[in-house]
Each structure stands twice: as structure tokens, then as C-alpha cells.
Amino acid sequence: MKFGVVIFPGSNCDYDTYFVLKDVFDQETTFLWHKEHSLHDVDCVVLPGGFSYGDYLRSGAIAKFSPLMQEVKEFADKGGLVLGICNGFQVLLELELLPGAMTRNKNLKFLCQHVHLRTENTHTPFTNRARKGDVIKIPIAHFDGNYFVEPETLHTIKQNDQIIFRYSEPNGHLSERANVNGSMHNIAGLINTGGNVLGMMPHPERASEAILGSKDGRIIFESIIHWLR
């Protein structure tokens, strides 16, 4: 089993993600450079957080054109596991591997804080170790995390059970207060119809060690490892 962490110019959670996979979970992990044309036979591609290409045009908008992303798209089309975290999620949206788009947080400020997420669907490679309804505490850190999708598409993704995480109160109650960035339908994490591409705004790699205040993010990596085993 081998993980690949993509580095775009401007990625800044690449080392954090690598550290968690390699040193915390003891998995074979390699970096994938954006200019390359090969995924080096990895089993799971992780698109990390950051500000790829400075995010000056739109978050994730330029990264989708990199040579490596054409490989990632092909890999995903064939059913390969792809996890996009924060900026990685934004890239997946721009690449149209996932539906919808991100707009600025509703308070127009960058938000870095712990949030609570209610797990909505556990029949996925990324959440199979969790129980439906589990609430996990994971940090967010983004400016553009206000998820938007046209009502018809929202209807479809609901019907397909594509919503994986929703912003909630610690007790699992969904509220506007818990929906800190203003996302439509409190959506924090979303999977594709093939069930192999997950995008999420919160950072599980920042919640995988006790010293960082939460270990709740581990469930996602544990699920992937379990799935691939």
C-alpha cells in the first residue's frame, strides 16, 4: 500500500500530510511533483491544503491544469482513491471531479478553528471505520470554504448519499451557528458518484495526534488503510 502526496507550488500542508501518513501511521508515502507525468504506482493520492499558485485567480483554478492532475483525473476515472483536503478539495471542484464550487466564507474572513462534523455516510473507503452520526472535532483553515451548488445538483447529491460530512454542533445537531463558513446544506465533505474521490474542507492531518488537541481525524486515514488492506 502506497500513498502519494501531491506538491503544487504554494501547497503548504504537503509535509503535514506526509508526516501523518509516514510517521504517525507508518505507511509508505511519497511526494508527487506537479510537473510529473506519473503517479509512481500509488494506491491513494492526497491533494493537500495550501494556496496552489497563490490562489490568486480562484482557489484551485490553476492547479487543475498541471501535468500531474491529468494523471490524477485518469486515475480517479479508473476508480483510484483520491482525497482532497482544503485546497485539494477546491482543486477537485475546479477539475469537476466533484460537483459545486467554493465561495468566500460568509463573514468574509479567513477562519481557523476547530469545528464539529457529523458523519453522514460510512459506506465509503474514507469513513468505513466510523459509525453514521459520529461527531468528530477537526480544524478548518480557509478563506473560501462556503460551498455552493445549484439546487438541482444538491438534490442529486443528496439522493446519491454523496454528502459525507456536515458542520454540526458538538451533539450532532445541525445549525446555522455551527455552519461557520455558510456552506450550503452545512456541507463540509463530499464524495463523487463513483465513491472513490472525497473532498473535505477540514484538515484531518491536523487532528491525528493527541498533542494537537484532537485525534478525531485519524478515522479517515484508518478507514483508507483498512479499505486498501
Binding site: 503548504n12 500542508c13 509535509y15 503535514d16 508526516f19 501523518v20 491544503g49 474572513k109 479567513f110 477562519l111 481557523c112 478553528q113 480544524p139 483553515a141 484538515h203 492531518e205 491536523r206 495526534e209 498533542i211 494537537l212 488537541g213
Partner: peptide
């Protein structure tokens, strides 16, 4: 003030 800063990137922040 603080929540506008990414105070957790690099995953070394042991106290918020």
C-alpha cells in the same frame, strides 16, 4: 484576531 490566522499549519502548535 487569532482565528483569522492559520495558527495550526505545520502541525506543531501544542497550545492554541
Amino acid at each position: 484576531v487569532f482565528r483569522q490566522y492559520d495558527h495550526m499549519v505545520q502541525t506543531n502548535t501544542a497550545l492554541l
